[in-house]
Design a protein around this nucleic acid. Structure first.
Lengths: 229, 229
DNA sequence: TGTACATCAGTGAACGCGCGTTCACTGATGTAC
DNA sequence: TGTACATCAGTGAACGCGCGTTCACTGATGTAC
């Protein structure tokens, strides 16, 4: 419960004791991500994953209690990385002197790129959360944590926010952005190559939604990309 | 393809030829909705559904080609109803003289109530769409249809919209609202009783999001509910 | 440095559970004369 | 109004497929002396 250490992954699996088995574990995790992204969660059978990892079924079960264990491991690993990234990216020291629009102009494209890069995983996580697994709770925890840090950052800039309840607006606005990206990752074929035009449109509109909802006074749109930074 | 008739349901099942079997079919559909809502899609087995319907497995398969057939039937039935409702609710004649805020103040609470009432189904539909079934396409079709009608309505009121691309903003704004409601239905325990306080907050914030995103000038919030209507 | 032993890691055929689907059968409804 | 027949509707035990999981076994790595 005390969310102290940032590196909690693998707690439910038997940790490998030799270099060889650590490599096998790494290959298995990578293979799982690939297979899930390619075929979807339902078709990502244990057999398919271990084949891709050039491992074996028995080996799989010496590391993971069951198939759930693997999925939880992937989710926890992702959440830990996301949390660490959020801590760094939203560090108040990093944004001293910056306005809300400036912050969101960095944050939103970054979120979009994360969801694009990990579309297959995000989709699988959404499926599992829907099916009622514990991923739903860990995901909610992550979102609250990120929202809390964003709130710390933006609540230092209350003079820019006209929404009558800034704390609520910050949390709800982030929720809307993340929810939309969840759906986008699940239902749009986001290419794994560089950012597409559609991504740019998504970024622009999400930014407009968030800023106008918070009630941040609008700068001239033509200024875009010509900021002092 | 020509979306003519509004009543397309049951096209892939053998239509019953006696009153008795029509009743059985109705009971089966109702039972499916109940079981799905209570236990989730994964635990809604054919056996559980026919037991609830006081029917039998064999009877089930004389009506539906397979289990998919049932789920498609439920989805198509829902979409047809939704489409018919949208046609009526968004009929321009009904809103003559009304402003955008007035329209959205009716639309959004209505959408919230639909998602609350059908939370179990909406969750199941989302699961199936995620799993890559054809529900994803029919759902997208429905959303486009509703968005089209909303666009017709709001584009007659362009003078109220400050967003530089009103057509885009209307479609994207609706998408954000529906996406958020999808998530809410899936992840929040919305009570089946009357509207809760949380619903009211959800309505308020979604309304603010949509209006501010479109760039509709804000009326005094204290006016709420005291309109001329 | 070499041998013996213990533990770790990996293997894949076989098992078994759950659940969708089938099928041989009984009962109900409608129709012809 | 009653009897014979055809079709529709319903039944539930049995089947079988897919996939997660187990288990008896082989091979690899590390350690003691």
């Amino acid at each position: 419960m005390t969310a102290g250490a940032s590196n909690l992954q693998f707690e439910w699996i038997r940790r490998p004791q030799q270099v060889r088995s650590q490599r096998t574990l790494d290959r298995t995790l990578d293979a799982a991500v690939e297979v899930i992204a390619e075929r979807g969660l339902a078709n990502a059978t244990v057999a398919a994953i271990v084949e891709r990892a050039q491992s074996s079924v028995g080996s799989f079960y010496t590391r993971f209690r069951d198939k759930e264990g693997l999925l939880r491991c992937l989710h926890e690993r992702f959440c830990n990385e996301a949390l660490a990234t959020a801590k760094e990216a939203l560090d108040p020291a990093r944004w001293r002197g910056a306005g809300i629009e400036e912050i969101l102009r960095e944050l939103i494209p970054f979120l979009v790129s994360i969801y694009r890069t990990n579309a297959g995983l995000m989709r699988a996580f959404l499926e599992r959360a829907l099916a009622g697994s514990e991923e739903a709770q860990r995901g909610a925890f992550l979102q609250r944590a990120v929202a809390g840090r964003l709130a710390l950052l933006l609540e230092d800039r209350l003079d820019e926010i006209r929404h009558p309840n800034p704390s609520l607006a910050i949390v709800f606005g982030l929720r809307i952005v993340l929810t939309t990206l969840d759906h986008a990752a699940a239902f749009e074929e986001l290419t794994l190559a560089g950012p597409s035009l559609r991504d740019q449109a998504l970024v622009d509109e999400l930014l407009t939604v968030f800023l106008s909802y918070l009630g941040v006074p609008e700068r001239d749109r033509a200024d875009r990309g010509m900021d002092m930074g």
